[in-house]
Computed example of a mutant assay.
Amino acid sequence: MRTPLLILLLSCLLAAITPVHAQNTDNAELAALYDDDQKARADGMNIDWSLVYREDAERRARVLALMREGAMRTAADHYHAAMVFQHGNGLDDIRIAHALSTLASTLAPDEIHYRWLVAASWDRIMATQLQPQWYGTQFQGSDAGLFLYPIADGAIDDAERARMGVPSLAQSQARVGEMAASMGQQARPQPPTIEQLRQERRLGETDAP
């Protein structure tokens, strides 16, 4: 993570744990940015992704500005900001999502959807680096169809998944067909291994102009 981002996240942590007046009031703009992020993805079959990606970038820029202003105080503020960054494109964005969701979960340890985002952002960090995910929250699509991204064998068990608000591995595997149908896709008949995905990326980099 770049040093300025680390400093910014540390400042957010200090703001969150420092007693201030109206500390428990959630930031309305962060909540609105989160709502917009979710609404943009509500109709899986009719999404203009070029528009969504552009709006995502605008939302992340605004969240960063609010972070710098010290606007994030509550667990919900950190969660709302984390979800916006969870839909970023690069590894730095996902690392911010993981840090913010971890802060949200620390501030409100009983909120299971905060824990879910900790798991999902960790999985996305791993997938972005072509490493097996742990929890089973990440699905990917290709020309051959939608698939559950490869899982690290033995990294965690279903009891830990349940603690983090994540379905069991069998449940996630069973959801592939349902999710594919909701997005107007098909399930990939033979999901790729992590080695195959790495090879596909190498071939893509070789073929790039």
Rank of each mutant, 00 (worst) to 15 (best):
I151C: 05
L146H: 05
R115Y: 00
Q171G: 15
E178L: 12
A127P: 03
D157W: 07
D123H: 04
G165T: 04
V176T: 14
H113I: 09
Q133I: 05
Q173L: 13
A152M: 09
I112K: 07
D123I: 01
A155W: 06
V176E: 12
A155R: 11
I151T: 04
A108I: 00
V166G: 04
Q171C: 15
A159S: 10
H113Y: 10
A144R: 13
R115C: 01
W134G: 01
Q131E: 11
P109L: 04
W134F: 07
Q171R: 15
R163E: 15
S121R: 00
A159N: 09
R115F: 00
P109G: 08
A127E: 05
W116K: 05
Q129T: 14
A119I: 02
D157K: 09
A162I: 07
G154N: 05
Y149V: 12
G177D: 15
I151L: 12
A170Y: 11
I151A: 02
T137P: 03
S168N: 11
A119Q: 01
Q140P: 04
A127K: 09
D110V: 10
R115G: 00
D123R: 03
Q138V: 13
D158N: 06
D153Q: 11
Q129Y: 04
I151F: 01
I125E: 07
Y149G: 08
M126C: 12
Y149M: 10
A119Y: 01
G177V: 14
G136I: 04
G145S: 11
Y114R: 03
L117G: 00
L146A: 09
A108V: 00
R115T: 00
R163I: 09
D157G: 11
A170K: 14
Q140Y: 10
L146N: 07
P109W: 03
V118F: 11
T128V: 08
W122K: 10
W134A: 07
D123Q: 02
R161E: 00
Q131R: 12
W122N: 05
R161C: 06
T106Y: 08
R163H: 14
P167Y: 08
A159H: 07
E111R: 11
E111L: 00
S172Q: 15
Y114L: 00
Y135E: 03
M164V: 02
E111W: 02
A174W: 08
V176D: 13
Q133S: 01
T128M: 12
S168D: 12
T128D: 05
E160L: 14
P132I: 02
D153Y: 06
P150A: 05
L107T: 04
G141K: 12
Y114T: 00
M164F: 13
G177T: 15
D153C: 09
L117D: 02
R124I: 05
M164K: 03
Q131C: 01
R175K: 15
L117M: 12
A159K: 10
L169N: 04
D158T: 08
Y135W: 10
T128F: 07
A120H: 05
